[in-house]
Write a protein that binds this DNA or RNA. Structure first.
Lengths: 138, 138
DNA sequence: CTGTATCCTTAGGGATACTG
DNA sequence: CAGTATCCCTAAGGATACAG
């Protein structure tokens, strides 16, 4: 079982953020929830660039114990779980949006995908609000 | 010599951003420049949570070849170099600011440091502009 | 379907000595 | 001062088989 990332938190907010979600998988999982609407273990497995099962399980636990995710049963299917973002997790969306905007500016492949980008740029606050509501309802 | 982080870039902007500066050191170096005004190898060594010399050298190269940093000689001291952010690098400041705001909300240690935070929150655009100008001049 | 458990490899990175 | 060069070690993470 992969181990928690070593913490270097020294009182610096950037270091704290990196310690919490700055590994190479956590933000991709959160991205899956925010942008792809993923909810289940299986969906993360498909979407997250081929993450290994043990690594995924470990990150889900980490994010849960950091109170960024919460796990609950699917009311319709008892053998299935849903992972949702907490408010703390939802508050990471602005970080992700800034990353997307940066990539849009400097990555040709990203730049080519106009749909989402124009929404972010034309009405950032509205777009953010829209995402927040969708995540809270789900 | 540490190796470049493995790339998973799949056309996703979040993955692209993580591939570019999502390792455990790059953002701390950029933070040093933005928040602490660090410019030289020696300053990074002191400030960056005890980064090893070889790792620092490697990251500086990586960030340079990603066109996030530029290296130049100190005009007054020929045996010394300055690392500055390019526009591409300066454009990462909003990402860092979002991370700081997130930590301010959820990390007690960060929350305690009111000075910078109040500046960000009261006049984000102005604060950003101020940083940009300072970085360009330096 | 949602994980665990193991095995195994490798990249990341600490420590330290050395160099132009 | 600004790095290189080594050595070495461990944690991160693939692959795969198995389990509740």
């Amino acid at each position: 079982m992969p181990h928690p990332v070593k913490k270097r938190h020294t009182g610096c907010p950037v270091a704290f953020a990196l310690d919490t979600f700055g590994d190479r998988w956590s933000l991709l999982i959160i991205r899956d929830i925010v942008l792809k609407g993923s909810k289940t273990y299986g969906e993360f497995l498909e979407a997250s660039e081929g993450i290994a099962t043990n690594v995924l399980a470990d990150r889900l636990k980490e994010l849960e114990s950091a109170h960024i995710l919460v796990k609950s049963r699917d009311p319709n299917n008892h053998r299935r779980y849903f992972y949702r973002l907490t408010e703390k997790g939802i508050d990471l969306v602005p970080v992700i949006l800034e990353m997307i905007q940066w990539s849009a500016k400097y990555d040709p492949q990203t730049k080519a995908r106009k749909e989402v980008l124009s929404k972010i740029e034309s009405d950032r606050q509205g777009f953010l609000q829209e995402i927040r509501e969708r995540l809270r309802e789900s």
